[in-house]
Design a protein around this nucleic acid. Structure first.
Lengths: 222, 222
DNA sequence: CAGCATACATACATGCATGTATATTATTGA
DNA sequence: TCAATAATATACATGCATGTATGTATGCTG
């Protein structure tokens, strides 16, 4: 189904033109970004397999020519997207970690962070696509897993810090707890997309709070 | 991408041959079953889009000829599979409901039921495929949703009964709670498939128990 | 056992998305 | 402004999965 070159990918290096053309460089960077943004939409909408490169290029305002000038294949842009995406998410968590707030506030902020996932359809579907791709493409598994791991680690760090400061003991490892929060959020939002009458947004929030408190909350001192 | 006839589907009626050939009928039923079982595997392994009819037929021990003799298209067998699948799951829950056990035992049994989802990779991935298909194919959305709703309702009924007997008040509706359990189970197992080092099976169990108890457990009397 | 229907296989036609090679347009530097 | 090069578009080739039409063998009925 997929050949070994899946793992290749990467940026196209223009032979040997150091910084001669920093103007055109900016231009290609811009179209690359546009293509990535479009890909985000299309992959979330159609899934990796059903997504057509023409749709991606089209949404970005180009044709497939521009696509192949900037990426090597569908997998290539998929990985580039993952890279970008993990970076964004990590910096979000890092921002939370940076602000030296009280543990209680941090906790609320973290809960909000996961609750937000619920709101963003694109986000939820995209992260699902990444996971499914990892499961179904053994050659790419390690690569994808590494990225996801970095992401989870950042969430886990935040939890670890909260746990230490407030002197709590979690029933599972911090990364597992972070994984659990992410899992519940995205899965609930998925259910909501399929059938809002099964779980309202209010109920999603309430379930998240309940889960949060159960994992983190109620054992202030060991 | 997909045309309106997606909604068609259904069984092939042999013109007008009442029960003349109940022997051959049994045979076709058998191959139909084999094809469905194979489809279950392939859809779970590759996803709906990437799944090839040839693989399904091949795994069942046939060629595409047999497939098209029994089903009209990939969507057709997909829906047939959903039908079968929902039926099976509902009867499982019904079995739980039937045995007139103590509420405590019922509760444990229900928790086990959801914990089992965690174990069965095929199950988790298949149900995901159904949901994703529903989200991405508006024409088929209603049909899929109806089936999923029946399934959730059966879980909700069980919860409702437990809640009534033990006189508890849930923080959300019974169906929402059932949805939450299902969501957490399958999402955690998905994470485990992607990267077992993020959440061990033990941790999955523990998180499920924590969630279960938080939603159902600790308010014996309102 | 003759004739027919059923179950499945084989072979072919079609469509469509990918990828590649070439042409066209924009941008830079002199 | 003109060459040169980069960025994107267009046109074409290929592969592959679907779907259909036809062939073949097996089982049923008189």
């Amino acid at each position: 189904m997929n050949h070994a070159r899946v793992l290749r990918g990467g940026a196209r290096i223009p032979a040997r033109a150091p910084a001669a053309t920093s103007r055109q460089q900016a231009r290609t960077d811009a179209t690359k970004r546009k293509l990535l943004v479009a890909a985000e939409q299309i992959f979330a909408r159609d899934g990796f397999e059903a997504a057509r490169l023409e749709d991606i290029a089209g949404l970005a305002g180009y044709t497939r020519g521009a696509f192949y000038a900037n990426f090597q294949s569908k997998e290539d842009i998929f990985f580039a997207l993952l890279e970008r995406w993990v970076g964004q998410r990590i910096s979000e968590v890092a921002a939370l970690l940076a602000q030296q707030e009280s543990p209680a506030k941090l906790l609320r902020a973290l809960r909000e962070h996961y609750a937000q996932i619920t709101q963003d359809r694109r986000l939820a579907l995209l992260s699902l696509e990444f996971k499914l791709f990892a499961i179904r493409h053994p050659e790419a598994h390690a690569r994808l897993r590494a990225r996801q791991r970095r992401l989870r680690a950042s969430g886990g760090d935040l939890l670890r810090r909260i746990a230490r400061v407030t002197d709590r003991t979690l029933p599972v490892s911090c990364t597992a707890a972070a994984t659990g929060f992410g899992a519940l959020s995205s899965a609930l939002s998925l259910e909501h997309f399929v059938d809002p009458s099964m779980v309202s947004e209010q109920e999603i929030r309430r379930l998240l709070v309940v889960f949060f408190d159960a994992v983190l909350g109620s054992n202030p001192a060991k």
